[in-house]
C-alpha cells in the first residue's frame, strides 16, 4: 500500500508535478500518483527521477499509476 495516493487525473500542467513534488518533500514513501495523460506521466516521472527517486509505471485503462519510492 502506498503511504500517499494523489489523484492528479484531469489536472492541467504543471499541477500533477506540483502535487507529486509536495508529497516527495514530505517524504511519506511510497507515493502513488494517478495521471491520465502521457504528458503528465512524463513530467512527473522526470521530476521524481531528478529528485533522486525511483519510478515504476503501471497502465490501467485510461490511467497511469506512478509509484514513486526512495532509491
Amino acid at each position: 500500500m502506498a503511504s500517499e495516493t494523489i489523484d492528479a487525473r484531469g489536472l492541467s500542467c504543471p499541477q500533477p508535478v506540483i502535487l507529486a513534488k509536495k508529497a516527495i518533500s514530505k517524504g511519506d514513501f511510497p507515493i502513488e500518483v494517478m495521471v491520465d495523460s502521457e504528458t503528465s506521466k512524463e513530467n512527473v516521472s522526470r521530476m521524481a527521477t531528478h529528485s533522486g527517486c525511483s519510478v515504476s509505471i503501471e497502465e490501467r485503462a485510461d490511467t497511469f499509476l506512478l509509484r514513486i519510492d526512495k532509491k
Partner: peptide, 13 residues
C-alpha cells in the same frame, strides 16, 4: 499563484 493553490479545476473526458 500555482504554488499558492491556484488551479482551474479538473477537465473530464
Amino acid at each position: 499563484f500555482l504554488k499558492n493553490g491556484y488551479n482551474l479545476g479538473r477537465s473530464t473526458p
